[in-house]
């Protein structure tokens, strides 16, 4: 056994902490740029009409939903077509809380937490299924939620329920406040998503996306990671639903639980770029530009929307942002790690 004399080696654990950077350019740029954009948007009530604010409010609601769907499907590989379940539960939570005397505007955070709490037990059911079966199961959950809610007569059954307690505000103040709330929720959704992706969880999600068996073998608790994402996505969609209820002054099960919401989240994320933070933003902008300019064209509007989806799916399968950023080798929201002093050529997509 003399051949096996142990070579002298340093121990694996105690080494000086290496220099690790999170992006190849100063993050002050990102922080400054984002802050500037948010401040500009916050000043919009002084700049544009109330009608314009409503368009932007709906823009932020869809942006929130799309960002959540992107987190679910683009990062955690869970293609859900049932996120409207949590949109609807968020909306109805506002109604229930308002009926019990809470101010609807102040109750939005709580109304978002309720769908998240519901999502936790639901995850144990739907996580038994994968891929297409998972997608169908989420849709079934959404339809079940709609059927259950519309059978509750205290909530107005199938005809819905108004949101009480909003009469005291002037229309102008109401418009401004709901606009700011929707801006706040969208910014929060993006910030939470970005924060998650930069955290240890984000690294786990990226690893699972590349090789799930390898990720488990590296010690990653894959189910737990998925469950966190599922609950966060329910929270975000719940907040979006709460905003919808407040801004429309009423909820109606057929519309707030509509699969249309899922279709829109999926559409804007796919054309913008799935699996990138920038994608849903770009996709939502494009969707609203098309909607504002073409909605009056009737059926042609839908034909054009469909054509956009087909063109993007064929020629830019990673979405418009994926198409642009792969050519410019640039991303607005870096999530990777660079080890200092070792020739930094890596850049994470």
């Amino acid at each position: 056994m003399t051949a096996l004399a142990p070579p002298k080696v340093p121990d694996l654990a105690p080494a000086p902490a290496p220099e690790v950077r999170r992006s190849s350019y100063p993050s002050a740029w990102l922080a400054g740029g984002s802050l500037g954009a948010v401040v500009l948007l916050a000043l919009m009530p002084e700049i544009i009409s109330q009608g314009g604010l409503v368009v932007l409010l709906n823009f932020f609601i869809l942006l929130t939903m799309a960002t959540m769907w992107n987190l679910l499907a683009g990062y955690a590989g869970m293609v859900s077509i049932g996120q409207q379940a949590f949109v609807g539960l968020g909306g109805y939570s506002v109604v229930v809380l308002a009926v019990n005397g809470l101010n609807p505007l102040a109750s939005i955070p709580l109304a978002a937490v309720i769908p998240a709490l519901v999502a936790l037990p639901i995850s144990y059911l739907v996580f038994r299924l994968r891929g297409g079966y998972f997608a169908i199961a989420t849709w079934v959950v959404a339809d079940t939620a709609e059927l259950v809610i519309s059978s509750v007569t205290a909530l107005g059954g199938g005809t819905g329920h108004p949101v009480p307690g909003l009469g005291s505000l002037s229309p102008r103040t109401f418009g401004d406040v709901t606009y700011w709330l929707s801006l706040g929720v969208a910014v929060l959704a993006l910030a939470v998503t970005y924060g998650l992706l930069r955290s240890r969880l984000g690294l786990v999600l990226a690893a699972v996306r590349d090789d799930e068996v390898g990720a488990r073998s590296a010690g990653a608790r894959v189910m737990q990671a998925r469950r966190i994402v599922f609950v966060v996505a329910a929270l975000g969609c719940g907040a979006a639903g709460a905003l919808l209820a407040v801004s429309q002054l009423q909820v109606q099960p057929g519309s707030i639980f509509s699969v249309q919401w899922a279709a829109e989240m999926i559409f804007v994320t796919m054309i913008g770029g799935m699996g990138t933070i920038e994608g849903p933003i770009l996709g939502t902008v494009l969707f609203f530009v098309l909607q504002q300019n073409l909605a009056s064209q009737g059926a042609w509007y839908l034909v054009i929307l469909g054509s956009v989806a087909v063109v993007v799916a064929i020629w830019a399968p990673k979405g418009i942002w994926g198409f642009v950023s792969s050519r410019l080798k640039f991303q607005l929201f870096p999530v990777g790690y660079l080890l200092g002093g070792r020739g930094s050529t890596g850049r994470r997509r």
Partner: peptide, 18 residues
């Protein structure tokens, strides 16, 4: 079974953290 889209250091970081 590398995590192909991640850098070598990130591959190791997942394992180290998890």
């Amino acid at each position: 079974r590398p995590f192909s889209g991640m850098t070598v250091f990130e591959n190791l970081l997942v394992a180290a953290q998890q």
